[in-house]
Amino acid sequence: MELLQNHIILLALTFGIFYAARQLQKWTGWIVLNPILVTIILLIALLKLTGISYETYQHAGSYIEFWLKPAIVALGVPLYQHLGQIRRQFLPIFLSQLAGCLVGLVSVVLIAKVMGASRETIISLAPKSVTTPIAMEVCQAMGGIPSLTAAIVVTVGLFGAVFGFKVLEVWHIRNPYSQGLSIGTASHAVGTSRAMEKGETYGAYASLGLILNGLLTALLAPIVLKIIGI
C-alpha cells in the first residue's frame, strides 16, 4: 500500500478511472453515469479501502484542481463570442439571474433551517449554486466550513449536469438561451461543462449564468442570511 501513496500513481489512477468512466458512459448512454460522479465515488471507495488519507490524495489532486482557475478564465472566450447577443438581452438576463439567485439562497437556507440543520451546515449550504472558488470565499466570510461547501458545490453541479435539462424540459423551458442560462446559474462550472457538450450557445449562456450568479451570490448571501436570522 506504500506505493499507492505515491502522488504520480494517484494521479495516473485518477486519469485512468475518469477515462474508464467516460467510456462507460459512452457505451451505456446513461446520463446518471456522469464520469465526474463515478470517478469521485470510485476514488473515495478506493481511498477508504486502502486507508489512504484525504490529505495524501489531496497532494496529488492539487495538480488537477490547479487547472480549475485557468479553466474559468478560459470561459472568457465563449463569453466574448456571444457578447453582442448578450448585450441586447441584458435586462432579461439580469432579472432572471436576480430571481434565481434570491430564490436559491432563500430556499436552501429556509429548508435547511426548518429541517434542523446546524448553523455551520446552513452557512456552508448557502452558496451551493456558485462556482467553488466563490462559494468557498462566501462561506468562509460568513463562518461556515469551506471544504464542506466545496463538496456540496460539486454535488449540486453534478445534480444540475445530470438532471438539469430533464427538469427544464418537464417545465416546458425549451429556449436554448434560457436553458443554458438556467443550468449555469443553478450548477456553475460542472453544469456549464455539460451545457458545452450540448452546444456553444448553451455553453456561452451557461458561463454567463455562472458569472452573474457568482457575483450576485457574493453580494447578496450575507444580506439574505442576516435577514433570515442565521
Binding site: 485518477t14 475518469f18 464520469p35 465526474i36 460522479l37 470517478t39 469521485i40 476514488l43 473515495i44 481511498l47 477508504k48 484525504y54 490524495y57 489531496q58 496529488a60 489532486g61 492539487s62 488537477i64 484542481e65 487547472w67 480549475l68 485557468p70 479553466a71 478560459a74 470561459l75 472566450v77 465563449p78 467553488t132 471544504s147 466545496a150 463538496a151 458545490v153 460539486v154 454535488t155 453541479g157 453534478l158 449536469a161 462550472a189 460542472v190 456549464t192 461543462s193 455539460r194 458545452m196 455553453g203
Partner: peptide, 18 residues
C-alpha cells in the same frame, strides 16, 4: 481547458469523504 473542466472538479469532490 473548457472541454476538460469537469475533470478538474474531481479532487474537490473527493473532499466529500472528510
Amino acid at each position: 481547458l473548457i472541454s476538460n473542466m469537469g475533470f478538474f472538479f474531481v479532487p474537490p469532490g473527493v473532499a466529500l469523504m472528510l
